[in-house]
Design a protein around this nucleic acid. Structure first.
Lengths: 148, 148
DNA sequence: CTGTATCCATCAAGATACTG
DNA sequence: CAGTATCTTGATGGATACAG
């Protein structure tokens, strides 16, 4: 009844863009929400999208990557870059030289993922203050009611 | 040089949509990436967006919510809904009846957040298989190289 | 330079029981 | 019905040392 571009979040609509049977009653959850959760989990970890974003400007070697992403630890960079490679979001090219050189580059899939993530980043930039304000107001109110 | 809609991810462009001084050399990291990470963290937890999505159809009480979101535990629903309320993404209305009745509803801010998240969900639906395939290929290859 | 392994702190999240 | 508290587990992430 409402003009909802969002209802899709709780329907299999986005989970079944191709021909998909509506056999399983399609309640609210399992069909689409699992895919959403998985993707949010992939994208929502601490470093993945930042690495992808940094790699969009072009290939980088390990150390350059670590320098560009700033706070990331050696271990986390290895781990992040490995999982991105595994999921086909970046490629890893090793040059058997001495000293060893390895270059990482974003794939087309990786770049396509950046698009919606940027939308989200834009939302974040636009509404970050709203959230902070709401949070402050909420906490102030709790604090006040804690007194009485 | 590239046609990059993504470069923004590693620049303060999206972090400073209003009038913002370019005073701080704006390296790659701190200014924008923190906001991105925070938002991805907020959105990327296991349940938040599913709750927001379910609430778009209209207000729901606690138990209805728990039933609609499926796998969520009592504790996690309370916690999720509380943090969403704190950030101004949902409202909580308590009716002092017996037995008690509480209704949760998405705010305008909450609904606006759903928009980019849906974009992401669409991406997930479109490319989920690509990721799975890439993952399988990667694992097969590792398995093969483990043998030799 | 690149990558792996180990140890450790922290937190998210589930199960469960209990209160208003 | 709604919410809180406790306990416990597993995953995440950081620091560090070591290996190719």
């Amino acid at each position: 009844m409402t003009n909802d571009p969002i209802r899709v979040l709780s329907t299999p609509a986005i989970a079944a863009p191709e021909g998909h049977e509506g056999s399983e009653a399609c309640s609210v959850d399992n069909p689409a929400s699992r895919v959403i959760r998985e993707t949010l989990a992939r994208v929502g970890d601490k470093w993945s999208m930042l690495v992808i974003g940094v790699l969009h400007d072009g290939p980088l070697r390990f150390t350059e990557l670590q320098r560009k992403v700033d706070g990331i630890s050696h271990r986390m960079l290895t781990q992040t870059v490995r999982s991105l490679e595994r999921d086909g979001l970046v490629t890893r090219t090793s040059y058997p030289e001495i000293p060893p050189r390895v270059e990482y580059a974003a794939t087309a899939l990786g770049r396509s993922l950046s698009v919606p993530v940027i939308e989200l980043a834009r939302w974040a930039a636009a509404h970050h203050d709203d959230i902070l304000d709401a949070r402050e107001a909420f906490d102030d109110q709790r604090e006040a009611s804690a007194v009485r």
